[in-house]
Design a binder for these strands. Structure first.
Length: 640
RNA sequence: GCCCCCUUAGCUCAGCGGUAGAGCAACUGAUUUGUAAUCAGUAGGUCGGCGGUUCAAAUCCGUCAGGGGGCUCCA
C-alpha cells in the first residue's frame, strides 16, 4: 500500500492505494467525484489518466473542467466519440487525426467523395450523445507495430499506416471505446459520461499533414461540454463575437468596404479615413518625438532591386510585376530595400547611428484568394514600418527603446494583456554564429532588463536574424499578433551598407526591421473587434452629434456646430425632420460617443443636453462653453 | 490555389420549378416633434455574370466572379 496525496479544488487529502490499481479506485473510496467532476489528473510527469494504474506516483492534482489540460483531454476523447458517430453513418470513411484544439476539437477524415453536409450535423450530434451517454470507457492497449499496421492495412487506411510507420515500434497504443478503436497516444477520459453536450460546428477542407500536394480531407469541427448550459453559454459567446466582426462594423459605421473590382483591396470611406489619419498622425508624432525620421519610398521599383534583396528569389509568388519603358519593375511587398537606398545616400559615420527611419509604407502582396479576410488579410496595406540602422553594440539599447515604445503604444489602446515571443536561430541561417549569439544575447538581455515576460521559440527566427513577436489579447480573449522586431544581418550586406567606425574603417551596420501596429488596416480591424466599434473619443470619426429637437432649433444647432468647428472637434448635425427618439436611435447605432440635444431650453439658455454614451449618463443644461471645454479635454489622445 | 457553404432592392432578409416580396434606408407630402423607430404615398431588382435542362428557372445542372468557414493546434 502507498499513501497518495490528492489535491482537488484547493484541498489536499490523503488516500491509501495499491500501485496496481487504477487511480479512480482510491478516489471513489475517498468519496471524490471521479469520472464526473474530476476528469483527469496531473503528476509531476504529466497527465495521469484516471483509469491508468497508479504505479509509483504518489502525488496527484485532480483536474476538472476549469483546467485547460482537462479540457484538452475531454475534447480529445470527444473527438473519438465523434469519429465513432461518423463511422456509424459513413462506415467507409477513413480516419486520420483528431486532436483537441483551443476551442473544441476536429477530426480529419477521408470520405472518398461522400462527405457529410451541414444537414447531417443533427444526426451526428444525436448519435454522438447516444454513444457518450452509454457511457463508453476508454481503454488503452499497447500494440506491436505489426499489429497496428495489420489493423489499418485491413481497413485500407494509408494515413494511419503512414503515421504508424513513423512511430517508435515499442510505443504504439490503441484506445478502445465501445466498438471503436483508434490509434492514439492519449490521454483520455476514464469514460465518456461527462460529455453531455456537443455541437458540430463546421466542415472544412484540410490537406493531409497541411501540405497542398497531399490529398484533401474533410475536417469536421465540433465542441463538447459537460452540460447543455455551458454549450449554450459558448454559443452565446460566438454570437457576441460575430456581432463584433469588423467587417460588419465597417459597414455599419461606414468606414470601409470591399468590392469585386478589387478583391482584397480595401476602399476607405470618409469616416474610415478620419480614423486612419488620426491613428497615423498620432503615431507619427510619437515616433518623431522618439528619435525617428520619416521617409517615403516608391511603390514601384525596378526588378533588379528585388533580385538584389533576395525577394525575387524567395518572395516572387507574392509580388506583382509590371513594366516601365519595357524594363521589368515590381510593386513593393516590403519597404526595407527602399529604406536601404535612403541610407546609402550619404556616407554614414558611427556618429550618425542609430539611424531610425520610419515609413508608413503602402505594400502590395499577392495573397491566395482563399485567405483574404476583411481587413485582417488584404492584398494592399500600410505598414507602420521602420528600419533602424545601428552598430552591433547598439542592438541591446535599441531593443530596450523599442520595448518601451511598443508597450506605450499598446497601452494607449487598452491592450493590457500581451505575450512576447523570442525566436532564435533556425537551422538554415546566414551570418556568423558569433554574430547570432551576440544578437540573441542582446535581445534576451533587453527583454530581461525591461522586465518583459517572454517565451522562447527555439529555431523559429528568420534566416537572416532572430526576432521578437508581440501578441495582444482583445476584450474577448482572442489573440492577435501585432508587432514584430527583427534583426537582420543579411540585407545590409546585400546592399553594401557601410558606416565609418571610430577606427576609421568601414563596417556593416545591423538593420532592425520593426512594426508596432503591424499594419494600420489590420490594426483597425483588431481595434474594431476589441472595442465592438465603441471607439475611444480621440479616434471616433464623429465625436459629437448635435440633435435639434425640431426644425425650430436648427439655427441654434448651427450655432453650436460653428463653435464645435472652431474648437476643432469632429461633429455632425442631424438635420432630418424625425422626432428626437429616432435621432437618438440612429446616433446610438452609429456609436457616436457624445450626443448633444438642443431645443427651446438650450437655445434660450445657451446650453446643451449632454448624452454621454461612454459613461451612459445624461446631463441637461450644460453651458455650451463648459460642454465644449469638457469635450476638448476628453478627446485628447493618449499622451505621446 | 484547394475543399465545403453562400450571393434576391442601398442595407437586413423571405420566397426554392409557374413569370419577384417584406422591414429599414431613399424620395414626396403631412406632422414641429424633449432622450432608442410619427403617418401616408412614390420610386427602386435582366434574383452576382454567362451557358444549359425544361412548355416554364430566382428556384435544377455546369461554369466564371465575389464573399464566408477552413487548409498540422500533428497518432
Amino acid at each position: 500500500m502507498a499513501l497518495l496525496t490528492l489535491r482537488w479544488q484547493g484541498k489536499i487529502q490523503q488516500a491509501e492505494a495499491k500501485p496496481d490499481e487504477p487511480l479512480y479506485a482510491p478516489l471513489q473510496r475517498s468519496g471524490l467525484p471521479a469520472g464526473t467532476e474530476i476528469l483527469t489528473a496531473r503528476t509531476s510527469k504529466g497527465i495521469h489518466e484516471l483509469q491508468a494504474l497508479i504505479g509509483d506516483a504518489t502525488e496527484f492534482e485532480l483536474l476538472g473542467w476549469d483546467s485547460h489540460e482537462a479540457k484538452s483531454v475531454f475534447w480529445h476523447s470527444s473527438a473519438h466519440i465523434l469519429a465513432e458517430a461518423i463511422l456509424h453513418f459513413w462506415p467507409k470513411a477513413k480516419l486520420t487525426i483528431g486532436p483537441p484544439i483551443e476551442n473544441g476539437f476536429y477530426y480529419d477524415i477521408d470520405f472518398a467523395g461522400d462527405a457529410p453536409t451541414p444537414e447531417d450535423f443533427p444526426r451526428i450530434e444525436r448519435r454522438f450523445l447516444e454513444l457518450s451517454q452509454q457511457p463508453e470507457y476508454f481503454v488503452r492497449r499497447k500494440v506491436s507495430k505489426e499489429e497496428a499496421l495489420a489493423h489499418y492495412t485491413a481497413l485500407q487506411n494509408p494515413y494511419k499506416v503512414e503515421l504508424i510507420q513513423e512511430l517508435p515500434p515499442d510505443d504504439i497504443t490503441f484506445y478502445e471505446s465501445g466498438d471503436f478503436v483508434d490509434l492514439c497516444k492519449g490521454p483520455h477520459l476514464w469514460h465518456s459520461g461527462p460529455i453531455k453536450a456537443v455541437k458540430v460546428l463546421s466542415l472544412a477542407g484540410a490537406y493531409w499533414r497541411g501540405d497542398s500536394r497531399n490529398p484533401q480531407l474533410t475536417r469536421v469541427y465540433a465542441i463538447s461540454f459537460p452540460s447543455q448550459a455551458l454549450l449554450e453559454e459558448h454559443l452565446r459567446l460566438l454570437e457576441e463575437a460575430a456581432k463584433r466582426d469588423h467587417r460588419l462594423l465597417g459597414k455599419q459605421l461606414d468606414l470601409f468596404s470591399f468590392h469585386e473590382e478589387g478583391p482584397g483591396f480595401p476602399f476607405w470611406h470618409p469616416k474610415g479615413m478620419v480614423l486612419m489619419n488620426t491613428l497615423q498622425e498620432w503615431l507619427r508624432r510619437k515616433l518623431l518625438r522618439s528619435g525617428y525620421h520619416e521617409i517615403k519610398t516608391p511603390i514601384i521599383l525596378t526588378q533588379r532591386l528585388w533580385e538584389q534583396s533576395g525577394h525575387y528569389e524567395n518572395y516572387r509568388e507574392n509580388m506583382y510585376f509590371t513594366q516601365i519603358d519595357e524594363a521589368p519593375f515590381a510593386v513593393k511587398p516590403m519597404n526595407c530595400p527602399g529604406s536601404t537606398i535612403v541610407y546609402r545616400t550619404q556616407l554614414r559615420s558611427y556618429r550618425d547611428l542609430p539611424l531610425r527611419l520610419f515609413e508608413f509604407g503602402l505594400v502590395h502582396r499577392h495573397e491566395l484568394s482563399g485567405v483574404l479576410t476583411g481587413l485582417f488579410r488584404v492584398r494592399a496595406f500600410t505598414q507602420d514600418d521602420a528600419h533602424i540602422f545601428c552598430t552591433p553594440e547598439q542592438i541591446q539599447s535599441e531593443i530596450a527603446n523599442l520595448l518601451r515604445l511598443v508597450e506605450s503604444v499598446y497601452n494607449a489602446f487598452g491592450f493590457q494583456q500581451r505575450e512576447v515571443y523570442l525566436s532564435t536561430r533556425p537551422e538554415k541561417y546566414i551570418g556568423s554564429l558569433e554574430l547570432w549569439n551576440q544578437a540573441e544575447a542582446s535581445l534576451e538581455a533587453a527583454l530581461q532588463a525591461a522586465g518583459v515576460l517572454y517565451q522562447v521559440n527555439p529555431g523559429d527566427g528568420a534566416f537572416y536574424g532572430p526576432k521578437i513577436d508581440f501578441i495582444v489579447r482583445d476584450s474577448l480573449q482572442r489573440r492577435w499578433q501585432l508587432g514584430t522586431i527583427q534583426l537582420d544581418f543579411s540585407m545590409p550586406r546585400r546592399f553594401g551598407l557601410e558606416y565609418v567606425g571610430t577606427d576609421g574603417q568601414t563596417h556593416v551596420p545591423v538593420m532592425i526591421h520593426r512594426a508596432i501596429l503591424g499594419s494600420f488596416e489590420r490594426f483597425i480591424g483588431v481595434l474594431l473587434e476589441h472595442t465592438g466599434g465603441e471607439l475611444p473619443l480621440w479616434l471616433a470619426p464623429v465625436q459629437v452629434k448635435v440633435l435639434p429637437v425640431s426644425d425650430k432649433f436648427l439655427g441654434y444647432a448651427q450655432e453650436v456646430a460653428q463653435r464645435l468647428e472652431k474648437a476643432g472637434l469632429r461633429y455632425e448635425v442631424d438635420f432630418s425632420q424625425e422626432k428626437l427618439g429616432k435621432k437618438i436611435l440612429f446616433a446610438e447605432q452609429e456609436k457616436v460617443p457624445m450626443i448633444w440635444v438642443v431645443g427651446a431650453k438650450e437655445a434660450e439658455q445657451g446650453t446643451v443636453a449632454v448624452r454621454d454614451r461612454t459613461q451612459r449618463t445624461q446631463e441637461e443644461g450644460v453651458p455650451l462653453d463648459a460642454a465644449i471645454a469638457a469635450l476638448q479635454e476628453k478627446v485628447q489622445s493618449p499622451h505621446v
